[in-house]
């Protein structure tokens, strides 16, 4: 939705996106390393642009992320998993469901960076000392238009964990739906 607000959308597709072999897993190790790196960068750019905090593999495989309809080329499911697995090792994504591998959380900002973004917001709106529910924080009206608006609860938890460690926040409650947070 937020993608429609910008007047001239930046070109988020790399040159490689229009290069048919980009969608074939390269047999040569060196070339594959370059290919992996390019995919990783592209996935992060794509998710940041569309503000996607999660990527569901089956949906993504049919979206223009992994499927270039103009070229009639697509990344095979196994190859996509290999790319995401490589990104997981770099701490850029995380499987929501370790064994089935159907969805990943995408960290186009690392939790530590998110913690800073969040804390800057807390300071700017004077929410220090007040208690907010997690739902309110990422889905409420007051954070509309903020970069972290719509953040996936699991990403939010990693972010809050960082802030707790830094002594910037304290979480209240255990059930994710009812959890609250207090900022210092």
């Amino acid at each position: 939705m937020s993608a429609t607000t910008s007047t001239t959308p930046p070109n988020i597709y790399p040159d490689l996106y229009n290069f048919p072999p980009f969608f074939t897993r390269q047999p040569n190790t060196t070339t594959f390393a370059a290919q992996l790196h390019a995919w990783s960068t592209f996935i992060l750019t794509y998710c940041r642009h569309h503000r996607l905090f999660t990527l569901e593999l089956s949906t993504a495989l049919d979206s223009d992320l992994f499927h270039n309809k103009a070229l009639n080329r697509r990344l095979k499911p196994a190859d996509a998993v290999e790319v995401l697995e490589a990104m997981r090792k770099d701490g850029l994504v995380e499987w929501v469901d370790g064994a089935t591998r159907s969805t990943v959380l995408v960290y186009w900002r690392k939790p530590a960076e998110w913690a800073e973004v969040l804390y800057r917001w807390v300071e700017s709106v004077g929410q220090k000392g007040s208690v907010l529910t997690l739902w309110e924080l990422v889905n409420g009206e007051m954070t509309e238009g903020e970069e972290f608006h719509g953040m996936h609860p699991m990403v939010l938890q990693s972010v809050l964990a960082v802030m707790v460690k830094r002594g910037q926040a304290q979480t209240i409650g255990t059930e994710i739906d009812e959890m609250g947070v207090k900022f210092f």
């Binding site: 290069f19 048919p20 072999p21 980009f22 969608f23 074939t24 390269q26 047999p27 040569n28 060196t30 070339t31 370059a34 290919q35 009639n72 080329r73 697509r74």
Partner: peptide, 20 residues
């Protein structure tokens, strides 16, 4: 291929070898 001078595309009728 082994010198990384071409990339292969295996989704055409016949394998296509592309220059980067």
């Amino acid at each position: 291929l082994s010198d990384s001078l071409v990339w292969v595309d295996d989704q055409a009728d016949e394998n296509e070898y592309w220059s980067p």
